[in-house]
Simulated assay, not measured.
Amino acid sequence: MESMGKGRIVILVALTAILTITGVWAISILNGISSTDMTIHGWIALGLGTFFSLVIGCGLMILMFISSRRGYDEAADPFRKRHPPSQ
């Protein structure tokens, strides 16, 4: 395993700080709205929205994986060196 350079350590510390700040902010927001009740329609909308977001995200990742494996996106890369067709 390579030793971590100064740049990687700085990036790791910055990302950890961003994650911590985001977590503290989310907890403070959730504590601020804890007295608000959500109706059954709200829970249904939240569940359906989460479910369909996951379905769309996973579906697009699967399509990207299949496209990469079958070589469909090779022609779309303008920086890749083109090899002449073998005969």
Rank of each mutant, 00 (worst) to 15 (best):
M1D: 10
E2H: 05
E2D: 12
E2Q: 10
S3M: 06
S3F: 02
S3H: 07
S3K: 06
M4G: 03
G5K: 01
G5V: 00
G7R: 03
R8T: 08
R8L: 06
I9L: 02
V10K: 11
V10G: 00
I11A: 03
I11W: 01
L12Q: 12
A14H: 02
A14V: 01
L15H: 03
L15Q: 07
L15P: 01
T16L: 15
A17C: 12
I18G: 02
I18C: 06
I18P: 00
I18L: 14
L19P: 00
L19N: 07
T20H: 08
T20Q: 09
T20I: 13
I21F: 11
T22L: 14
G23Q: 01
G23S: 08
G23T: 08
V24Q: 06
V24Y: 13
W25C: 06
W25L: 14
W25M: 08
A26F: 13
S28R: 14
S28G: 07
I29L: 13
I29Q: 11
I29K: 10
L30W: 11
L30D: 09
L30I: 10
N31C: 10
G32S: 15
I33L: 10
I33V: 15
S34C: 04
S35R: 05
T36L: 09
I40F: 09
I40V: 13
I40S: 14
I40E: 14
I40H: 12
H41T: 12
H41M: 08
H41A: 11
H41E: 15
H41S: 11
G42D: 15
G42S: 10
W43A: 03
W43R: 07
W43N: 06
A45L: 10
A45M: 13
A45R: 09
A45G: 03
L46W: 06
L46R: 06
G47S: 07
L48I: 12
G49Y: 00
G49W: 03
F51D: 02
S53W: 07
L54M: 14
L54F: 15
V55P: 01
V55M: 07
I56K: 05
I56M: 09
G57Y: 04
G57P: 00
G57F: 05
G59T: 15
G59M: 08
G59L: 12
G59Y: 12
G59R: 03
L60C: 10
L60G: 08
L60V: 11
M61Q: 11
M61F: 09
I62F: 11
I62S: 05
L63D: 11
L63W: 07
M64L: 14
I66G: 03
S68N: 12
S68V: 10
R69Q: 13
R70F: 01
R70M: 09
R70D: 01
Y72S: 00
D73W: 04
D73Y: 03
D73R: 05
E74N: 07
E74A: 03
E74I: 01
A75L: 04
A75R: 04
A75K: 08
A76L: 14
A76Q: 13
D77R: 07
P78V: 05
P78F: 04
F79L: 13
F79G: 03
K81G: 04
K81V: 11
H83V: 05
P84C: 02
P84E: 02
P85V: 02
P85Y: 00
S86H: 03
S86E: 06
Q87K: 08
